[in-house]
């Protein structure tokens, strides 16, 4: 056993101080992700036009209730935009060699993942506000809208979907294109089992989809009664918080396990 003379003792920070430092560094990673991956003309154009096209595609010539229309489009845009780029960034950075550079910096894998959540969250929230604005302009007459609840629901749901995107990004894939297959097999089935543009109780499998709870909060915010009874809003919030933390901790565990494989 080789013994070392300690030239100086490195001071260990307290847990709270470490948490604060790592949280701050997660924002730095977010800033980097936003600048490199999100702030690109094609991404921004898609982010703006995708909700607009969806809005008019589902509005014109269809006799869907304005409540389900607004909540459906917002939820769909929130889910698709919050989970769109996160899964691509990891394989992209792995193949370019920047991921290894980042892991040698004084940040934990959890910090890197949380940084990724913030950027997906901002992107999802920003572009899902487009159908909200369009809905308010074109479809809100006669609706008693609770803006606070809608925005709170969008924030919470965007965080949950961003955490969910971390699970899709966990396989140590080196080719960003391969994540598209995963996305198709995970994201689209979730959309199909969710009660988009219809009453929540009309699909039996709806309860297993996180999108359902987002829809219910939005429906309540637009003046509809909760599908889960008088404590429906509380159930929605608790389920969303539970799912958010569940996805997050699952993502932490899987990423920790698959991290080494990214470097082989």
């Amino acid at each position: 056993m080789i013994k070392i003379n300690k030239e100086f003792i490195l001071s260990k920070e307290s847990r709270f101080s470490t948490f604060k430092t790592q949280l701050k560094r997660s924002f730095i990673i977010t800033k980097k992700d936003l600048r490199i991956y999100y702030n690109k003309p094609p991404v921004l154009i898609q982010g703006i036009f995708f909700p607009i096209i969806l809005f008019f595609a589902f509005t014109i010539g269809r006799s869907i209730s304005p409540i389900y229309l607004i909540s459906g489009i917002i939820a769909m845009v929130l889910f698709l935009t919050s989970t769109s780029l996160g899964p691509i960034i990891f394989p992209w950075e792995t193949i370019r060699g920047t991921f290894e550079r980042l892991t040698t910096c004084p940040v934990s894998i959890k910090t890197i993942l949380i940084g990724s959540i913030w950027s997906s969250f901002i992107y999802g929230l920003l572009f899902s506000s487009i159908p909200l604005v369009l809905g308010v302009i074109f479809l809100s007459s006669g609706l008693a809208i609770n803006y606070f609840l809608i925005i709170a629901g969008m924030i919470l749901s965007s965080l949950v979907f961003s955490s969910f995107s971390l699970i899709i990004s966990s396989p140590p894939i080196r080719n960003p294109g391969n994540t598209m297959i995963l996305q198709i097999f995970i994201k689209f089935p979730l959309l199909f089992i969710s009660p988009l543009f219809m009453p929540i109780n009309s699909i039996a499998t709806a309860v297993i989809s996180p999108i359902t709870y987002c829809l219910d909060v939005l429906n309540i915010g637009l003046g509809e009664v909760s599908a889960f009874g008088s404590f429906g809003l509380l159930i929605d919030i608790l389920v969303l918080i539970g799912l958010g933390f569940g996805f997050l901790f699952l993502a932490f565990a899987i990423h920790q396990k698959t991290l080494e494989k990214r470097f082989r």
Partner: peptide, 20 residues
């Protein structure tokens, strides 16, 4: 974290951020 804070690295397969 503690150790990475006082070390600098140039990994073999590492790269700079091309878009920065």
């Amino acid at each position: 974290i503690l150790v990475k804070q006082i070390t600098g690295n140039v990994p073999e397969e590492a790269n700079v951020y091309f878009d920065l």
